[in-house]
Design a protein around this nucleic acid. Sequence first.
DNA 1: GCGACAG
DNA 2: ATCTTGTCGC
Length: 228
Amino acid sequence: MEPSLPDPSTWTHLTKEGLYRLQEEVAERATFDDEGGDVERVAGVDQAFPGDLVLSCVVSMEGEDVVERSAAEGETPMPYVPGLLVFREMPTAMAAVESLDDEPDALLVDGSGAIHPRFAGLATHLGVALDLPTVGVIKNLLCGETEEPTEVGEANPVLYEGRLVGYSFLSKERCNPVYVSPGHRFSPEGALDLVREWLTGHKLPEPIFLADRCVDEYGAGSRQPPPG
DNA sequence: GCGACAG
DNA sequence: ATCTTGTCGC
């Protein structure tokens, strides 16, 4: 059995180099192959940051139906640093996913996967920590090179350090492309397929779109558990 | 040294 | 991410 990753409470005591090392370990444990099996239930994950708080919402779906929602909140552990976003969003995102009554077959995360300086974005950390297949979707490229797609449905490889880490993908007319990458237990192609399957007319796949709306309402309202 | 840089 | 009105276009 592999040794478990350090507890989130120790992260703030680590140096930048220590955090980099942690990400490298997570990347080593991640698998970028399609070994998730049948994917029926998919949950979207997104965060918001009102004041000093971190709010996370998860919306679990099967087909067209929302089958469950969950939320979690906490204080910001540390400021946002490009490449180290995971240490800011992980704790509440994990808590929100773990508070679901029924575990989904896969996670669509508002954050990157293999498209990352050390091949371990938020989606990868969540996947490895929860042992769930995950896919990362971002709106701005963190690293790597790609040819921007110009036609709806067009997807082009994102290369970083000679590796295929994901795809730039035009999901909707008159929108900027999104960048899709495997988090854990998905290949770059499988990750792109999952995003395509969960597109319903919005720029982002429906579970993430709804998690986005959910977390906004959760933060704007009386911070009560989100309604159905 | 300078700029770039998920959310 | 967040601070924010109107406005152009489907």
